[in-house]
Structure formats: C-alpha cells, structure tokens
C-alpha cells in the first residue's frame, strides 16, 4: 500500500458507502391520501424544497420508490391497497407515517379509519401533526436518513399476512 496516501483514493466500507448513497437519494412514492398529501406537495414545492435532501424524485410507481410517505388517513377500504403498494416496492424500503391519522388514527376514532398505518405496514418514522408542517416532514426525512446511515432497519418486525390485512 505504499504511495497510496498521495493519490486520490478513498477507502470505505462497502456497507457504509451504500448506506450513505441510499440516505442521500431517497425516492418517495407519489402517494397522497388526504390533507397531509397537500403538505407533502408543499414540502416538495418551491419554498421548502425537499430536493435539498435528495428526496424530491416522487415516483408514480411504487416499483421505482424506496420510501413510502403515508400522507393521510387510511380507510378500511384503502388498507389492503396500501399493503399491496408496500409489497410492490423493492427492498430496501422505508415507511414514514405522516400525520396523526397515519400514525394512530388521529381525530377519527371510528369504524372507517385504520387506527394507524402500522397495523398494515411497518413504520420507520412517525410525524406528529394534523397535518404536520413541511418542516415536520423535512425533519422526518432527515431522521430517516440518519437511521439509514446508522444501519437501516435492524430487523423487519413481524407483519400480518395479506389475509389478515384484508380482514382488518
């Protein structure tokens, strides 16, 4: 290894390098449900500018995305579809539950709304607010980047089967 120090060479662990690259180019699925989707749009738009964090490439197809921002309330009718979209996303993938409804059901404690999207898909980051401010979502993206750089999701939690989801 003699003479390497004065050449433009960088040593890194492959894992760390991959994590760094992943955290810097998150591709969220363009997936809005309710009010929070409007704030998500605002986050991506000119004033807050999600692209500063490398996460502005909203993909219309879940097959091209690696972050799912569940922006809004998930109804019983929508829950199986949310799960299907999640299953279609390639690994590695992360989920941000944006807002009170996606996190815990919010103000809608009733027959129609799933009380938190974590009953359907595993959630990495919860964002409080109804709806969260764009700053809140940006903070969540930054937290997620930190999480990815620190080794991503340690282990996927036990998840309900698609049949159980359909019954939920």
């Amino acid at each position: 290894m003699a003479g390497v120090e004065d050449r433009p060479v960088l040593f890194a662990s492959m894992k760390k390098l991959a994590q760094w690259a992943q955290s810097g180019s998150l591709w969220p699925a363009q997936f809005g449900l309710a009010c929070c989707a409007i704030e998500m749009m605002a986050t991506a738009a000119s004033r807050f500018d999600l692209s500063r964090f490398g996460a502005e490439v909203m993909r219309a197809s879940p097959r091209q995305a690696d972050v799912m921002i569940v922006a809004g309330r998930v109804s019983q009718k929508m829950a199986p579809i949310v799960r299907e979209l999640y299953d279609q996303m390639p690994e590695p993938k992360w989920v941000i539950a944006m807002g009170a409804c996606a996190s815990v059901g919010g103000v809608f404690n009733n027959y129609a709304i799933v009380q938190g999207v974590d009953r359907v898909v595993p959630v990495d980051i919860y964002v409080p607010g109804c709806p969260p401010t764009p700053e809140g979502l940006l903070e969540a993206v930054m937290q997620l980047q930190k999480k990815i750089r620190m080794g991503g999701r340690p282990m996927a939690p036990a998840m309900p089967s698609p049949e159980e989801v359909a019954q939920a």
Binding site: L33, A34, C35, I38, G72, R73, S75, Q76, K77, M78, I81, V107, F108, N110, Y111, A112, I113
Partner: peptide, 28 residues
C-alpha cells in the same frame, strides 16, 4: 369510497364547536 372517513357520523359524537375541526378535513 377509498377515503371514507365517517366524518358525518363522527360529528354526532362531538359538540357543535368541536365538529368544526372535522369540517376542516373534508375539503382540505
């Protein structure tokens, strides 16, 4: 129906002033 929230039903559980918060979340 993919966003059915039960807002009309939920209003019956809240006082007249509290129900305003639910009307916000219809046409957001």
């Amino acid at each position: 129906g993919y966003l059915h929230t039960g807002i009309e039903k939920n209003c019956e559980d809240l006082t007249f002033n509290q129900a305003i918060t639910l009307t916000d979340r219809m046409d957001y």
